[in-house]
Design a protein around this nucleic acid. Structure first.
Length: 745
DNA sequence: CAAATCGATTCCAAGGGCGT
DNA sequence: ACGCCCTTGGAATCGATTTG
């Protein structure tokens, strides 16, 4: 956090649940992958207010070996067989282990791949009995609530006492290698009863132990035992706290969930490994057996039952941490989204985190740097692409086909690098929607030289955005119907490349250079803007007029001039629009508003000029430029003439107008323009004898009489009238001129 | 248990935009 | 032209985890 001092006093309400670092915690899973994993849940949580019952399931899915469904189907039979033997074996367990203080719930782990187990056992009997069990090491979670500085639960090894019985209580099965298990699966025998005995012992001990062990005397374990006893098949143990973990050989292991989770959580490296790999990992020496390893992952009553007693506590703690992690992640993702929305640099992600924290929300204690935002933005992007992909590949209910769509693209150079912005145009819930896809850099430099910018390369970029970025399947490309772009894309090469990549080559179409079913329409607005540029550049009249109109912005656009303009307008209670500049690089339609705002506030502008800036100097250019009668006439005329084309241009820019509507608009506009060309009627050489039609030139008509007044002092425009003298440009003001004429008469 | 490695964070500096 | 601010990449540092 860049300004941590500011927020330090709010640290009091930091929950004291644990001291583990919450946030973008690192593990074997890469940062980006983890964000992607979390993002779906997080985004769902964002959307439906956090009441997502799927969350624990999802988190669980990250762990291996929890695929219960498959097992419940295949091994229901096996479990029922085991249960049948249970009654018989009860007699065995009671006398054999009565005086066995070490006998415990660690036997809850029972391999039930029977054939493999039997074979392994047979093989084991050939060898000598394994003595390595006498001293065992139990992995145990250190209670980390007191040493919160490091915070992370660490594994410590505890040497446990020896079993009372000499013979191995749990038949340790030696199929740690794939070869052994393959060999084992070929052998079948009746020693399987040994396995059943283990389960009997387990059940028996679980029943006995609670009375002997205060730690085991909690409702959860008792309930688990009850469920386990009443189970007749594997699916019944659901909810008992024990779970079936399948292995890769079709068998599996019944484990105490809480204890196993505790082990796995404390050693994240185990998460990426499968069952046997976990086993090997947990074995300390190669000589150790699978059974011994399993025991470590089991629920155990050793150490006075402490381990199992702690496991549910640790589990609850983990769940609290997980929930907090989701909260934290949501807050962090919200901050990142906010930063994106305000179009700020990722540095401001840090500021957003600071703000969120200062508002009392939990932001964790990791993942606050701007570098973290990169991964989040990538996750956003991937998610958006997925949503777009789903939209484009899901068949519509009406047609049974995926929706047709179009693309549009344009180049842009914000600073130095030109980017090719590519968007998809598609109907979404009945609304025309433009979805951004990608913006690859146009030009690249390689050993072959400068590359990019040609028509076919641009077309390839469009295709690449669809195929590589969006990962659309190839058959979806045939739904691409059109590409909308400006002049540079109207080349045959672009169409050809795009069409052959999406819909395959069709020579007839290519020869005709167009295909009515695959079109590249030109953006109407761009086309009209080019017309406007042509008109502007070819007309000295317009250029001069724009130069004169820009004077207002120069004078009153900002600073002192702006204040004096606004002040004068307020004093005289006049309308005062903010002046604008006619930007030649921008669309003519956006610059057209300049003329309108001048028209609206011309009186205020002139008043401000007359009041403060105007001098008595007859040669002052400015007063003729902005207060001339010809300027007023031109202003009204230009607004009248251009208003219709500009209206059309603005309409054609909006997304909710169909491109081809312009074909209906243009004849009307053209008719109006032609009618304007015919009138004003009268002798144009003498402006005072020209009549203006109200319908065609509303503004000009409105002010024409005023502007024709010989003494125009009181006209609305309040400009000094300037007449043209002897074709030598602007002479004196109109008033001076008429005064002179009057004198001479 | 120490070294190595990895990841997150912070500090620093260069470069560009923009207002004065 | 100058200075301030923003952005961004890289180096340094710190802490946690893994490995030998």
């Amino acid at each position: 956090m860049s300004s941590s001092d500011e927020y330090e006093n709010t640290m009091d309400h930091e929950p004291d649940v644990e001291s583990e670092q919450i946030g973008a915690k690192s593990s074997k899973v890469s940062n980006e992958r983890k964000f992607l994993q979390y993002f779906q849940t997080a985004s769902k949580k964002l959307s439906d207010g956090g009441n997502d019952p799927q969350v624990p399931k999802h988190v669980k899915n990250v762990q291996p070996g929890t695929n219960k469904k498959r097992v419940q189907k295949t091994l229901t039979f096996a479990w029922s067989v085991i249960r049948r033997f249970a009654v018989v074996s009860e007699r065995h367990a009671a006398p054999n282990h009565k005086n066995d203080p070490g006998f415990n719930l660690s036997k809850s782990i029972v391999p039930i791949n029977h054939q493999a187990a039997v074979a392994a056992k047979r093989k084991k009997e050939d060898n000598t009995l394994c003595e390595s069990e006498d001293t065992e090491e139990v992995m145990e979670i250190e209670n980390s609530s007191d040493n919160s500085s490091s915070g992370n639960a660490s594994l410590v090894q505890v040497t446990t006492t020896q079993f009372g019985s000499k013979r191995p209580i749990q038949s340790t099965l030696n199929f740690t290698s794939e070869e052994n298990s393959k060999q084992a699966s070929r052998v079948c025998g009746d020693d399987i009863s040994v396995i059943y005995n283990k389960i009997d012992k387990l059940l028996e001990r679980m029943e006995i132990t609670p009375s002997e062990n205060k730690f085991m005397h909690n409702g959860e374990t008792e309930a688990a035992v009850k469920i386990l006893k009443e189970s007749s098949c594997l699916s019944d143990i659901d909810g008992s706290g024990f779970n079936f973990y399948p292995d890769t050989f079709g068998g599996g292991i019944v484990r105490c969930e809480a204890c196993f989770e505790m082990i796995c959580d404390s050693s994240p490296a185990l998460l990426d490994k499968d069952l046997l790999q976990v086993q090997r990992k947990m074995e300390k020496s190669p000589g150790n057996t699978l059974g011994a390893g399993l025991e470590h992952a089991s629920c155990t009553t050793r150490n006075g039952g402490n381990a199992h007693y702690r496991a549910p506590i640790a589990r609850k703690r983990r769940r609290v941490i997980k929930e907090r992690s989701m909260d934290v992640l949501c807050n962090q993702l919200k901050s990142a989204l906010f930063t994106v929305k305000i179009k700020a640099a990722s540095l401001h992600y840090e500021n957003a985190i600071g703000l969120v924290h200062s508002c009392g929300s939990d932001v964790g204690n990791l993942g606050h740097g701007r570098n973290q935002m990169k991964a989040m933005v990538q996750a956003f992007e991937c998610y958006l692409h997925k949503r777009t992909r789903d939209l484009l590949t899901t068949p519509l209910p009406s047609t049974g086909l995926p929706p047709h769509f179009g693309t549009t693209s344009d180049k842009s150079t914000p600073i130095h690098v030109s980017n090719h912005a590519i968007m998809i145009l598609v109907m979404l819930n009945g609304m025309k929607t433009a979805i951004p896809v990608d913006a690859p850099p146009v030009y690249s430099f390689s050993e072959a030289g400068l590359k990019g910018g040609t028509a076919d390369e641009l077309a390839e970029q469009v295709i690449s955005a669809l195929v590589k970025t969006l990962k659309l399947p190839n058959n979806s490309l045939s739904s691409l119907m059109a590409h909308q772009a400006d002049g540079q894309y109207q080349s045959r090469m672009f169409l050809q490349t795009l069409k052959s990549s999406t819909q395959g080559d069709n020579k007839e179409d290519l020869l005709a250079a167009h295909d009515i079913f695959f079109v590249i329409p030109w953006d109407t607005a761009h086309w009209m803007d080019l017309c406007m540029v042509d008109i502007r550049e070819s007309s000295e009249f317009l250029r001069r007029f724009i130069k004169r109109a820009n004077q207002f912005n120069t004078m009153y656009g900002r600073g002192k001039g702006h204040a004096e303009y606004q002040g004068v307008a307020k004093q005289n209670s006049l309308k005062a629009h903010v002046t604008k500049v006619y930007a030649t690089t921008r669309f003519a339609s956006s610059s057209f508003s300049q003329f309108e705002s001048i028209y609206e506030s011309y009186e205020a502008l002139c008043k401000a000029f007359s009041a403060i800036r105007e001098t008595d100097d007859e040669d002052e250019e400015m007063k003729y430029m902005i207060k001339g009668r010809d300027f007023c006439l031109d202003l009204c005329g230009i607004i009248d003439i251009l208003s219709k084309p500009m209206e059309m241009m603005i309409k054609s820019q909006s997304l909710d107008q169909y491109l081809w509507s312009v074909t209906k608009w243009w004849p009307k506009v053209k008719a109006i323009l032609l009618a304007m060309k015919r009138g004003p009627t009268g002798q144009l050489s003498d402006i005072r004898k020209v009549t203006v039609r109200k319908q065609l030139f509303p503004k000009l008509w409105k002010h024409y009489e005023d502007l024709n007044e010989e003494d125009s002092v009181d006209c609305i425009f309040r400009g000094s009238v300037i007449t043209r003298m002897d074709g030598r440009g602007y002479g004196r003001t109109g008033r001076q001129h008429f005064q002179k004429e009057k004198k001479s008469h």
